[in-house]
Nucleic acid binder design. Structure first.
Lengths: 201, 201
DNA sequence: CTCTAAAAGCAAATTATTTGCTTTAGTGGA
DNA sequence: TCCACTAAAGCAAATAATTTGCTTTTAGAG
């Protein structure tokens, strides 16, 4: 049973429990994982075929290393996709949290509906790795929490994160995954307007 | 470029345009497709490994037939999953459409959250076949339409199908796909209660 | 500095996929 | 009814991917 590629959260979590249980960040395991992830990115960029042998060659690694660590190409791609889906910055702060929420969702919808975005979601889901899928919604929840916290700091009462996930995130993702056309700006704005109308004290 | 397995809708659609363009329903193409689909079902039942050679053997067909018709195992499994996701009956009619809606959603959530259900959704999505994913939401929409039509017949004004998809179906599917735990009965009932409160008259 | 366990490399064996060519089944026209 | 014609299936050889047993390397512990 191969050990999944370690990401930072996992390191964190395990390290808390048993500080001795992790390879050093600069160790071989981490180096190889980085090389493989980079190889996948580069091949994707170059539009080359993503096969385990091709990735292995690019990463300067032997295919059996990848098979033993990740099991299948799908699981490797799932891990890669989760990393790429991790947000790199907090949502912008305009001072108006409602506008920030609307702006954030518009950008989120656009990114996820793009061809690369759709491919990443597919990759995450294709590999029956519950943790990876959960990480994606956790990232989204964290972004929403940032916006909500600003509202709370100003004494406002924004909808719960769970409500926002149900009312704005879920419909957008559902339409991206199961719909023929991608959710447009008016649609997204409508979702936000409705949840703000219904959901605030 | 392999031609995807024909399903009834496609036949219908093409047949309308050019009555001569389809193989007969009892023709070889249909027979082979049926044999392959059956083979997949049987292997799944038996818990055997699903590989193209295994499916081909079981179907009494040569692997290259499958590769040329479907391209990849993922696409074949996607086609199989869509067929299985097609509802086999209209939602039960108790005379109370609100109760029917709640009951239908509870059963839908349970089915989709089950391990076979999750696998089918994954299979449908894994194969970047927009038509297959769309068919799934179309089936769901049709079921909702049946319930709505009963409400309309009684002079009630149920929420639009699109609203129901956004407010009840999407959150359930989102949680199944991206959540750690499956949506429970209380949660589902809550979604229905809210959309009925917000969305009517 | 050595010892150990985990993970990587290597190569052979197995399995899956692709491909060129041949054969067959269904369709339309004489 | 019979004869082409086309699309799809069969077959088998060639290629590519995956698995596996064994050896070697590496990081970390004593």
């Amino acid at each position: 049973m191969p050990v999944a590629g370690w990401d930072m959260e996992q390191k964190q979590r395990v390290a808390e429990k048993s500080p001795q249980a992790m390879p050093r960040p600069g160790g071989r395991a981490a180096r190889i994982q980085a090389a493989v992830f980079k190889a996948v990115d580069e091949l994707k960029q170059a539009g080359e075929e993503l096969t385990v042998p091709a990735i292995a060659t690019r990463a300067g690694v032997t295919p059996s290393t990848i098979y033993r660590r990740w099991g299948t190409l799908a699981e490797l791609l799932s891990d890669v996709a989760v990393r790429q889906l991790r947000p790199d910055a907090a949502p912008p702060d305009s001072g108006d949290w409602r506008a920030d929420l609307k702006g954030w969702l518009e950008q989120y919808a656009e990114e996820m509906a793009s061809e690369p975005g759709r491919a990443m979601i597919r990759d995450v889901l294709a590999a029956d790795r519950v943790d990876n899928a959960c990480a994606c919604s956790a990232y989204t929840g964290q972004q929403l929490d940032v916006i909500r916290q600003r509202a709370l700091d100003r004494g406002d009462s924004p909808p719960d994160t769970a409500v926002l996930m149900d009312r704005v995130v879920a419909p957008v993702i559902y339409r991206i995954l199961f719909g023929r056309e991608t959710p447009g700006g008016e649609y997204v704005a409508g979702l936000v307007a409705e949840v703000l109308r219904d959901g605030e004290g």
